[in-house]
Amino acid sequence: MFARTKRLFLRPAWPEDADALVAAIADEAIVRNLATAPWPYGIDDAREKIAHDAETPAHEASCLVFLRTAGAPELVGSVGFGRWNDKIAIPEIGYWVARKHWGKGIAVEAAEAVLEAAFLGVGSDMLGAGHFIDNPASGKVLRKLGFVPTGEIIPYPCRARGCEIDSVEYRLSRERWLDRVGMYREAA
């Protein structure tokens, strides 16, 4: 998936992104809130992720997020949607943003592009999401995107912490997303 927003450019990861990926994500405050990333995070982990993402099925997306600048774009995060483990029934959205870019709306802006791809491009009817209970900032992002808490808190694996962490679960329907962004479903 490739997408361009007001400030960002989203695209698949390429092998030459490995060093920039490590520089952006190798921060325990980021990795501890992700399900699949290890800690510490090194160049071999970046290469493994890039190779894995190259195999992403067409009905899923995994993108690096770049801040568009006057010069070379700066890698500032990642966003995608898919089935991250066997415990989930519907695709989930996931994201992270490099610490120096926290609080700037980048996660919301990048996720909006991915939601459009999921709901309009792939035709998903429902997306899930979750955040570890000790990461309420991610819940704030999800609510800004229109996700609604399900009331469920489930144990979810965290590779960096080496255990399961309670995750607050959310859902967003295609219909709710279309209403929120001002689009209407065509009559069937």
Rank of each mutant, 00 (worst) to 15 (best):
L172T: 05
G103A: 06
H131R: 04
L8G: 01
R176C: 05
V31P: 01
L142H: 00
R32N: 07
A188M: 06
R32C: 10
G121W: 00
G94C: 07
R176G: 07
R174N: 12
A107Y: 03
D134M: 04
R11T: 01
A54S: 15
A13W: 10
A37F: 12
V122E: 00
D166W: 08
R68F: 00
P91K: 11
A24Q: 02
S78T: 00
G182R: 09
G121M: 09
D86C: 06
S138D: 03
G130F: 08
P40L: 06
W39G: 14
R32Q: 13
P155G: 11
P40F: 08
R174A: 15
I133T: 07
G71I: 04
E175V: 07
L67K: 07
G162R: 07
E112T: 11
V141A: 10
E28N: 10
L64G: 14
G77C: 05
D17Y: 05
F147G: 05
A29W: 06
R159Q: 11
M183Y: 09
W39D: 09
A23N: 00
W39A: 14
P149R: 10
F147H: 06
A129Y: 01
G80P: 04
E112F: 04
C163A: 08
A37N: 09
Y95P: 04
V76M: 00
E28W: 03
R47T: 08
G182F: 06
P40Y: 02
A107K: 02
N135W: 07
I154W: 10
R171H: 09
G151T: 08
H131W: 04
V181N: 06
L145M: 09
R32D: 03
V22F: 15
T56W: 13
R143Q: 10
A29K: 15
V65K: 06
V148T: 14
H101F: 15
R176S: 15
L142D: 05
P38V: 13
R174E: 07
T5P: 01
V148W: 03
T150I: 07
A129V: 01
D19Q: 14
V122H: 05
I165E: 15
H101C: 10
G128C: 11
D45K: 09
H59S: 13
L64I: 03
G128F: 07
Y170P: 03
I25W: 05
C63D: 05
P12T: 03
A35Q: 15
P155A: 13
A70P: 04
I165C: 15
A160S: 14
H101N: 14
Y156M: 14
K87E: 13
W84S: 13
D19C: 08
E92S: 13
V22A: 15
C163H: 04
L34V: 07
E164D: 15
W84R: 11
D134F: 00
E92A: 12
A118F: 05
E169D: 03
R143Y: 00
K100R: 14
S78F: 02
R185I: 14
H131S: 01
T56V: 14
D179T: 09
G103E: 02
V22I: 13
M183N: 06
G146D: 00
L67C: 02
W39N: 11
C158A: 13
D45I: 11
E92I: 02
L145E: 04
W102S: 11
P136I: 01
A118Q: 01
H59Q: 11
G151A: 08
I106M: 02
V148E: 13
K6S: 13
Y184W: 05
G77V: 08
M126F: 05
D125T: 04
I43G: 02
K87A: 14
